[in-house]
Design a protein around this nucleic acid. Structure first.
Lengths: 148, 148
DNA sequence: GTGCGTGCAAAATCTTTGCATACGC
DNA sequence: GCGTATGCAAAGATTTTGCACGCAC
């Protein structure tokens, strides 16, 4: 009997194919990287590029930029602007919903936290103006104990 | 009788002199611009430069950048990162305290709102980790009615 | 085989910096 | 007059783009 196994399709693959796009090793590697390091980490384009070079995968910086923007548009990643010089990206996943950032403006140390209240306030603000809410992020700028 | 009038010292001038710095026409023009356009507007460095050229004041782009960073450090301006490409700045004034942004990710329309609750949450988060709070801003990313 | 995606290098942005000059104090 | 601030132009940093080739489908 002919072995009929079905290749598991990842959400990434499905989503790409729905849009007539392709699952390339590069795209897989970028998303894999974020999934490997987990939900709370913030990487810049340069860092993604560097980490992929280390793990013997060859992805050009231009492709990293293109892929990051693609993954953000497709909802797999979240783009952050925390004034650490350049934008950063993080994994957006179900078990890591709306969350907020406490950033030390001196050393860049970042802690995350969640708050149901804040989500609610964002929702109300959006509703009041007739906007459709996508996400809300609270950025708390502060000085960490070490830098004080 | 000799006219003895006292030149009014602006907060900017006082603050600068306290630090051994100087009140230059350039610095005055940049802060004036923000005060003229009012509290809720977000300008990029390029825009500040452009607007100052229009009004026949000559300020170099390098000075605009240096002045913006200075004014932020001195607490006259607030630096925003709303993913509109490049950082933006807005006037920070007493009658316009901690406030938040509701941004349409499609057309860039931005509404502001305030929330005592959010300020409180930020404060608690900072305290919990031993950080000294500077400010907290809630960014709500959404789609405005027109773009829906 | 078709045409989307990649790599490369060049270009476009955005921001900072070195240095001689100008000017606030 | 002293020393900070400015302007200019060059350098840096970050991100985008054009084009020929390669590979996912």
């Amino acid at each position: 009997m002919k072995a009929s196994y079905s290749k598991v399709s990842t959400p990434l693959e499905l989503e790409l194919h729905q849009q007539g796009r392709r699952l390339t090793p590069q795209r897989k590697r970028v998303l894999d990287l974020f999934q490997r390091i987990g939900g709370g980490k913030h990487l810049s384009a340069e860092e993604v590029h560097g980490k992929l070079l280390q793990s013997k995968s060859r992805v050009s910086l231009a492709t990293v930029y293109r892929t990051l923007r693609l993954l953000v548009k497709m909802g797999f990643l979240n783009e952050l602007e925390l004034s650490e010089g350049g934008h950063r990206f993080e994994l957006l996943s179900q078990d890591h919903p709306d969350h907020h950032h406490l950033v030390c403006v001196n050393c860049g140390r970042t802690e995350e936290f969640e708050s149901e209240q804040v989500v609610l306030v964002g929702k109300q603000a959006a509703e009041k103006e007739g906007f459709k809410l996508l996400e809300s992020t609270l950025n708390v700028r502060a000085i960490c104990p070490k830098c004080l």
